[in-house]
Amino acid sequence: MRRVRFLPWLYAGPTLLLLAFFLVYPSLDTFRLSLYGPDSEQFVGLQNYVYAFTTGEMWIAFRNNAIWLVLFTFFTVAGGLVIAVLADRVKYEPAAKALIFLPQAISFVGAGVIWKFVYDFDPDIGLLNAILTGLFPNAEPVGWLVNSDVATFALVGTGIWMWTGFAMTILSAAVKDVPEEISEAARIDGANEWQLFWRITVPYIASTIAVVTTTMIINVLKVFDLVYVMTAGRYETNVIANQMYKELYINRQNGRASAIAVILLLAIVPVMLFNIRRFQEQEAMR
């Protein structure tokens, strides 16, 4: 680390200016609007926040974002890691990885159709119900996307399918950086593959795991397109970002939409603090 006076501002300047315009300025505006009424003219104090924390729809959204946070983050990161490590040991790695990556290349318009053919209620069209009624002839088909008990989980499943490829790609690059000598030395010392994974690979790529996990948590906070395309938040599948969209464009409640956006920004603070600490550690160690 070298201390220099003007140079950092030259290097980071373009980024900071662009961010100030595209994200900081609108966010400050959002914060201001969150204290105003639907037409952004009448000052209402914290009323929009009270609304955001007391209405039933928002509590459904908070609950669902919590479900997303646990299931989606765990399965994408763990799944991505397992696939990255396992695929590293087979000759057809590029093909296997391409198949996992594939969903990332599909637009949301396409993904909606893809999952129709999986989740459709009609066992003649939906694969899951075809398997279910095929294996258990007495079973009733399940309305995966219209049953409030399962719909959120169906959406999380689609999310995992789409994003595991992202986690895998980033983690795979890190796994390949683990020096061969270290793993070889451990093998000679009698470590089995399981121990190798936990004692060498995981610690070595810990910072990349943290990056991928952070990205997935942010994805969870922002999850919108998928829910909007598949259920539009019906059947108790609502999420925070979808409720914000609804307040903004359907209910025309600018103030409430802004308050929800500010809540999202506050929710990220712990993640920010965690990342700062981690980067400080990283700098102390390098």
Binding site: D120, F121, D122, P141, G143, L145, V146, N147
Partner: peptide
Amino acid sequence: DGGTTGVLAT
């Protein structure tokens, strides 16, 4: 046709 779930899902 399809019961009430069918109504919702179709």
